[in-house]
């Protein structure tokens, strides 16, 4: 038996505490703020442009999302978005451009396994859970909103 018992495991985990490097949390948060803020500002620019063409607000928001998804997808295709992501962390992942990155990166990666079982099957490998839980939560919230309030 070379698997450590619970007591040894706990002792080892305490022992490790001294050696763990601290994450650069403050730096990461500031960078996420800047990168995320910048992406949203670009989005606002797109929105303003679309509105200036006389498109109603609701449709303009929808169109802005599509434009940003396209931008994220293209930057992923060009091999740039993974760098933005490793620099900006959640600042790059949370905007819808990051959502696009999470769809395009597996689609590209698994193309070598074919267009059906590769691209088709793996496209939502990362983004799938987001859609599943967004749908579930939204449904529950809406039902509560309808019947409780």
């Amino acid at each position: 038996m070379t698997k450590a018992n619970i007591r040894e495991q706990e002792a080892y985990s305490v022992f490790l505490e001294d050696f763990r490097p601290k994450r650069a949390t403050l730096r990461n948060i500031v960078v996420a703020f800047l990168v995320g803020g910048l992406i949203c500002t670009i989005g606002q620019g797109v929105l303003t442009f679309i509105l200036s063409k006389g498109i109603p607000l609701k449709q303009a928001y929808v169109l802005t999302s599509s434009v940003m998804v396209f931008a994220g997808a293209l930057l992923t295709g060009l091999g740039v978005y993974d760098r933005i992501g490793s620099f900006g962390g959640m600042g790059a992942a949370l905007p819808i451009t990051g959502f696009a990155n999470s769809v395009v990166s597996p689609a590209m990666e698994y193309k070598r396994e074919g267009f059906v079982l590769g691209v088709g099957a793996k496209m939502f490998q990362v983004a799938g859970p987001v859609i599943v839980y967004a749908t579930l939560t939204a449904t529950i919230v809406s039902i509560i909103k309808l019947y409780v309030f």
Binding site: R83, I84, G89, A92, A93, G98, S102
Partner: peptide
């Protein structure tokens, strides 16, 4: 993750 997925290590 896929190689082009942007994430922090």
């Amino acid at each position: 993750y896929p190689t082009e997925f942007g994430h922090q290590r």
